[in-house]
Simulated scan of single mutants.
Amino acid sequence: MTSILTNGGAISALQTLRSINSDMAETQGRVSSGLRVQTAADNAAYWSIATTMRSDNMALSAVSDSIGLGQAIADTAVAALDIVIESLDAMKWLFVSARSMEPIDITDFSYYGMTYFPEDGAEKRVDPKYAGSLLQKLDEDMLQHIMAINNAVDSASFNGVNLLAKPKDGVDLDDAFAATFVTGYAPGDIQTLRLKSRDFVLFNDNFANYGTIAEEDTNAGILDADINIMAQLPDGSTWWTSAPIDLFHSTFSDQPYDNVGINVIYDLEAVISMSGFTRDSAYEYFINEFEKKIQGVVSAQAKLGAVQHRLEMAGEFNSDLRNAYTSGIGRLVDADMSEESTRFKALETQQQLGIQALQIANSNSDNVVALFR
């Protein structure tokens, strides 16, 4: 049936063309955005999963930043410990050298220890019998290593975190943590790595605040405590001396200070003279105790090496996890550009054919007019 009021062919062609145009718009959106699921209306389930995974991926990105910060802090501390161990080894060599030298005839013990305690360190006068001796030259070299250790520890700070030095805050060493690093994230669970101060702190400014020797020893950092010598007397018996030998970090009136200006070897010789110890046994005990401090620092560096390795593994795992999340999101919502380009080309052809079909359908009315001529 031919009608001048209703053109069924044109209506059908127009409906087909509208459908093709709608498909083309959808395909164009996928091509321009690279996504086949852009909104919840496209696919509610996939959009919801992808949105959640993107949020988790952002959290993992923050974890990567935290791991990088932790690695920088650990690397800084390890670099400082390299200097500390190098200086400690040099100091041990100086003690061994001092043992083989002629002793000083010390009779005036007023030069032993510190003379006064300014805020920036310790000062002392020099015994005239000691001045210019070979032992004094060793002490001058010793002082440079002590200052190098102090400077290395003080400088081992990154972003305000120093694993090797604990400020005066009244917190017991066993209860304190040097740092806490975020190393991982699972939905609803942040994974952290906490470093105990006990394992890494060389100098603890709090150890001066305690009233008993036991409490001070408990809160002393690895290099804090002085050395009290137990050595042999000429009759073969052994005894403790109550005269401590300070090395790096000491206290006076409950205030910590760096031993700037200290003469360690002279003090060791003075303690030997005051106590009547045999020189060899005193040096042997002192060097053994000093070796314990070296091993304490070596242990701290070994633990830091383990921390570095753990952070490295955490960083690699976190990177792999982020890549897996990104790939998973892509599988859910990314458009297949090869498929979309082929589809777009086909829709272009269909659109052209649809326009031609509509033109043909619209020409039917001209045929009706021709019948009445």
Score class of each variant (00 low, 15 high):
Met1Phe: 14
Met1Asn: 10
Ile4His: 09
Leu5Pro: 00
Ala10Gly: 05
Ala10Cys: 09
Ala13Lys: 03
Gln15His: 14
Thr16Val: 11
Arg18Ala: 07
Arg18Gly: 02
Arg18Gln: 14
Ile20Glu: 02
Ser22Leu: 13
Asp23His: 07
Met24Ser: 13
Glu26Ala: 15
Gly29Asn: 15
Gly34Ser: 11
Leu35Tyr: 14
Arg36Ile: 08
Asp42Thr: 09
Tyr46Leu: 14
Ser48Asp: 12
Ser61Glu: 14
Ser66Tyr: 10
Ile67Met: 06
Leu69His: 03
Gln71Val: 06
Ile73Ala: 01
Ala74Tyr: 06
Asp75Asn: 12
Val78Cys: 00
Val78Gly: 01
Ala79Glu: 07
Ala79Gln: 08
Asp82Val: 03
Leu88Pro: 04
Asp89Arg: 10
Lys92Cys: 02
Leu94Glu: 02
Phe95Ser: 00
Val96Met: 10
Ser97Val: 03
Ile104His: 03
Ser110Asn: 14
Tyr111Glu: 03
Tyr112Phe: 14
Tyr112Pro: 00
Phe117Ile: 10
Pro118Asp: 11
Glu119Tyr: 13
Gly121Asp: 10
Glu123Thr: 08
Pro128Glu: 07
Tyr130Glu: 11
Lys137Tyr: 13
Asp141Gln: 15
Leu143Ile: 10
His145Tyr: 15
Ile149Trp: 09
Asp154Thr: 08
Ala156Leu: 06
Ser157Asn: 10
Lys166Met: 15
Asp169Pro: 07
Gly170Leu: 08
Val171Gly: 05
Asp172Ile: 05
Ala176Ile: 07
Val182Cys: 01
Val182Leu: 11
Tyr185Cys: 04
Pro187Val: 09
Pro187Thr: 04
Gly188Ile: 05
Gln191Ala: 08
Thr192Asp: 07
Leu195His: 03
Lys196Leu: 07
Ser197Ala: 15
Asn206Ser: 09
Tyr210Ile: 02
Ala214Pro: 11
Glu215Val: 03
Glu215Ile: 02
Glu216Pro: 00
Ala220His: 04
Ala220Gly: 12
Gly221Ser: 09
Ala225Cys: 09
Ile227Cys: 03
Asn228Phe: 15
Gln232Arg: 12
Leu233Trp: 05
Gly236Gln: 06
Trp239Cys: 13
Trp239His: 12
Ser242Gly: 15
Ala243Trp: 14
Phe248Arg: 04
Ser250Gln: 03
Thr251Phe: 15
Phe252Lys: 12
Ile262Asn: 04
Asn263Pro: 00
Asn263Val: 00
Asn263Ile: 00
Ile265Tyr: 06
Asp267Cys: 04
Ile272His: 04
Met274Ala: 04
Met274Ile: 05
Phe277Thr: 00
Tyr283Gln: 00
Tyr285Asn: 01
Glu291Trp: 02
Glu291Pro: 00
Gln295Gly: 00
Val297Glu: 02
Gln301His: 05
Val307Asp: 01
Gln308Thr: 05
Arg310Phe: 07
Arg310Asp: 04
Arg310Cys: 00
Met313Asp: 11
Asn318Ile: 02
Ser319Glu: 12
Ser319Ile: 01
Leu321Val: 04
Arg322Val: 03
Tyr325Ser: 02
Thr326Ile: 06
Thr326Asn: 06
Ser327Ala: 12
Gly330Cys: 07
Val333Gly: 02
Val333Ile: 15
Ala335Tyr: 13
Asp336His: 04
Ser341Thr: 13
Arg343Leu: 12
Lys345Asp: 15
Glu348Val: 10
Thr349Cys: 05
Gly354Gln: 06
Ile355Val: 15
Gln356Ala: 15
Ala357Glu: 12
Leu358Trp: 11
Gln359Trp: 07
Asp366Asn: 13
Leu371Arg: 11
Arg373Lys: 13
Arg373Gln: 13
